[in-house]
Design a protein around this nucleic acid. Structure first.
Length: 801
DNA sequence: ATGGGATAATTTTTT
DNA sequence: ATTATCCCAT
């Protein structure tokens, strides 16, 4: 496609600060990548003089791929493209000594932080009811994101609460230092401190990064702002791209005022607005404009498009949650049968992860291939964290937090009381927990526990020794073998009937470590640990397989889909009940704006008036966002008026066309503080009476003639059924039988791109083959289950079909 | 030291 | 409904 004038201007601008205000779907990724390509190919900038910062690893990867296509892999490798954290981790690896820390550091995540804070509270004798741990973590994170040190905190904030938090902050910092650990915020803050306090390092990086590009600038926080400011201060070739209307991460201390103030910091800024949308239909863009215009804190901007007018946006007012799901299923079937759409054109967006469940349930029951993005992360699973804790302690035995995590995992009779005593001793002698464990005798600890401790120490020493000799994947295998941890997991797996076993997850971890060893230049334990600390999940969104995607609106940022269903548009859910003040409601509205602008062709918005929440039935009213739609011509509203309610569900959904006006009125009555001037000027549409008369043009969603579900011919599977599907259970047991048998069948030749199937995961495509002299693994994109899996064909039978 | 039962809380999330 | 946390009995 041809570039428009604004895009060209942004791409070919070379020197001086550049602010690109890029509306949704305005081709900003293209502008960024072509800008990099232009700097290198035409201006003659050396690739290692360019720094490009992205918001997620995924977008960093995408940018690398796209730049690579235009300037080649070799040059792209010399660029610094990455997230703020990965860039800072790279800098700290060489420069952390400047703040007197050891480069052997480990990165602490939220749960590690949680443990430290809990300990601090205990030591300071502060009640964790009046000072909830998560609130404290947030406060400290906020301070660090605003470049406020612990000492400054205690001086700056003088209320009782803040003074106590300051105390905790000081102690927390101390603990991190003792454990030779950094939290995520530290990584950025420390780099800023190093640059501020060491002129020669600042000079070095300023000369290195002659050209800086920052994506998603509306979601940066103060430290990130400082960092970019410091790095770019010499050459001032800073290009930032963002959209105030898509700032949705203030709960993570993002501050969109930073992008609003960019011009104040750099008076010579060239500002370019990209407001031509290449993604969506006119109707979708108009709707998004009407919603976002309600926000006061923004640059006025009017996104337009030359795309087709498009279909009206459907609004569906349903009686209960299950009907929402049924409606989505039915619509998808229609679009597939009559409009040539396929499963991977469809995406369901929701406000909270909890909403995904019912969709998953019914999608599985109706054999709808789907993939849930986000939600519970692989690396947050207990068994995975336990193993990573072993690795972290092996790498850095001073890490008392992870040491505590594994000292009695699996159970080896070193209980809380014993650990408490050990910690007391550690504090008393000001020695690390690891040093204390290495003593031969412990006062006041029983002989059984002493023996266990000695065994544990010997085990760890052995593992530390081995870690220098063997690969990470082998080390993980050794850990689970030597500790007999796998036995404990096996038992837990047998007890619970949850899907996806813990043992299997551990195998996935080993496989993913193996794939890291094949892909990565540096395969040291250190490199692996910083790699896993900075990635969120191993499964990525793969656009090729034919699956319906389900995700939160937050996760959908930056993506686009032909057909979007935004579900659960009810007061309390979207906008969320936790959003109370004006600023929070505006953020919810931006979130709604993001959701709408994901859609390319068709957009359906649904809500249910009744839904199960917190274990009981709740009655909900339509979202206030409906009342903000001014043009009746953009939407088509349907209401489910079936008096039989849920009993009718197994037969049909009967939808009746209604007027949008009813939602304006309803919202005016329901939302307190909603004081719009009288109806005279706004929402009444000349067509409203006609529409009401029209109400017998029903949309009849009869699905008894469904050709969709081939197995149970007539009906959608909507009745309650046991959680686990029978066929899945059978497949799983088959799979485990094969696994235990140590299958050594015929060696089949596999090729990338080949269609294969396994008993447990069904059909899929081989996306990558990884092998070396000790292992042979397949990465397979499965159609029915979420994402790709790493499969060892020696353990899992893989058949071609 | 461990495990079971009572009790409380329940957004969004990258790194 | 689900899950984490706490406290007490074993």
């Amino acid at each position: 496609m041809k570039l428009n004038e604004q895009q060209k201007e942004a791409i070919y601008h070379v020197n001086g600060p550049l602010l690109i205000l890029a509306g949704a779907g305005s081709g900003k990724t293209r502008v960024l990548t072509e800008r990099i390509a232009n700097l290198i190919s035409n201006v003659g900038v050396r690739p290692y003089n360019i720094l490009a910062v992205t918001f997620t690893n995924k977008s960093a990867k995408e940018m690398k791929e796209r730049v690579s296509k235009s300037i080649g892999e070799e040059l792209t490798k010399m660029l610094w493209i990455g997230t703020f954290h990965s860039i800072c981790s790279k800098i700290l690896r060489t420069d952390i000594q400047f703040i007197g820390r050891n480069s052997n550091f480990v990165i602490y995540d939220n749960s590690d932080q949680n443990k430290i804070i809990t300990e601090c509270l205990k030591k300071l004798n502060i009640d964790d009811k009046s000072f909830p741990v998560n609130k404290i973590i947030q406060a400290i994170s906020k301070a660090k994101s605003s470049t406020i040190t612990a000492e400054e905190y205690t001086k700056k904030f003088l209320t009782y609460t803040d003074q106590r938090i300051g105390e905790i902050y000081v102690m927390y910092e101390d603990a991190l230092k003792k454990n030779n650990a950094l939290d995520f915020d530290d990584m950025l803050f420390y780099v800023v401190q190093i640059l501020k306090n060491n002129p020669e390092r600042l000079e070095y990086y300023q000369n290195k990064f002659k050209y800086i590009l920052v994506d998603e600038y509306q979601d940066t926080n103060l430290v990130q702002y400082e960092l970019i400011r410091l790095l770019g201060d010499k050459f001032r070739n800073i290009c930032v791209v963002g959209d105030v209307d898509q700032s949705i991460y203030s709960f993570r201390n993002a501050d969109f005022r930073i992008i609003l103030n960019f011009k104040k910091d750099y008076s010579e800024t060239k500002m370019i607005t990209l407001d031509k949308n290449y993604r969506s239909t006119k109707k979708i863009i108009s709707l998004s404009n009407e919603i976002i215009e309600q926000n006061k804190d923004r640059f006025p901007k009017n996104l337009t498009t030359d795309n087709a007018e498009g279909e009206k946006i459907g609004i569906y007012d349903l009686n209960e949650e299950m009907m929402e799901v049924l409606f989505v299923i039915k619509q998808m079937e229609n679009l597939r049968a009559n409009k040539g759409y396929s499963f991977n054109d469809f995406t369901v967006l929701y406000r909270t992860n909890a909403q995904s469940r019912i969709f998953e349930e019914y999608f599985i029951r109706n054999n709808i291939p789907h993939q849930v993005l986000g939600g519970f992360r692989f690396f947050d699973r207990k068994e995975i964290k336990d193993i990573l804790s072993y690795l972290k302690v092996i790498f850095n035995p001073e890490d008392a937090i992870n040491l505590q995590r594994i000292i009695n995992t699996p159970k080896r009779s070193i209980g809380n009381t014993t650990v408490e005593k050990l910690l007391d001793t550690s504090n008393a002698y000001n020695m690390s927990l690891w040093d204390i464990l290495n003593f031969q005798n412990f006062d006041g600890i029983g002989p059984a526990a002493q023996k266990s401790i000695r065994q544990f120490v010997e085990l760890m020493k052995k593992l530390i020794q081995e870690s220098h000799l063997i690969s990470v994947s082998k080390l993980i295998q050794l850990i689970v073998d030597e500790t007999r941890y796998i036995d404990e997991l096996q038992k837990e797996d047998e007890k619970s009937d949850k899907e996806g076993s813990r043992v299997e997850n551990v195998n996935q971890l080993i496989n993913s470590a193996f794939s890291f060893e094949i892909d990565s230049d540096d395969v040291s334990l250190e490199a692996y640990l910083s790699y896993v600390s900075l990635i969120s999940d191993i499964d990525a969104l793969d656009g090729e397989s034919n699956k319906v995607k389900l995700m939160t609106v937050h996760t959908s940022k930056g993506l686009e889909f032909p057909v979007v269903f935004i579900v659960g548009l009810a007061e309390g859910i979207f906008p969320h009940s936790r959003s109370e003040n004006h600023a929070e409601i505006e953020e919810e509205r931006r979130l709604m704006y993001v959701a709408i602008t994901r859609a390319k062709e068709l957009l359906h918005i649904t809500f249910a008036r009744e839904r199960m929440m917190y274990g009981s039935k709740q009655h909900l009213t339509p979202s206030r966002f409906f009342s903000e739609i001014k043009s009746e011509s953009l939407v088509e509203c349907y209401k489910n008026l079936d008096p039989r309610g849920h009993r009718a569900v197994n037969q049909r959904i009967s939808l009746t066309k209604v007027s949008l006006d009813s939602y304006s009125d309803e919202m005016k009555n329901k939302i307190s503080g909603f004081n719009k001037p009288n109806t005279s000027h706004s929402y009444a549409s000349p067509y409203s009476t006609k529409r009401n008369d029209d109400s017998f043009s029903n949309v009849d969603m009869d699905y008894s003639s469904s050709s969709f579900n081939s197995k149970s011919n007539n009906e959608y599977n909507l009745k309650k059924s046991p959680k686990k599907l029978d066929n899945l259970a059978i497949q799983a047991s088959l799979e485990s039988r094969y696994a235990n048998k140590n299958y050594d069948g015929p060696k089949v030749e596999f090729k990338e791109g080949e269609k294969v199937q396994t008993a447990k995961w069904g059909k899929g495509t081989i996306s990558k083959i990884m092998k070396n002299n000790e292992k042979f693994l397949l990465i397979i994109n499965f159609d029915s289950v979420g994402g790709s899996k790493i499969i060892d064909p020696k353990i899992t039978i893989v058949e071609k079909y």
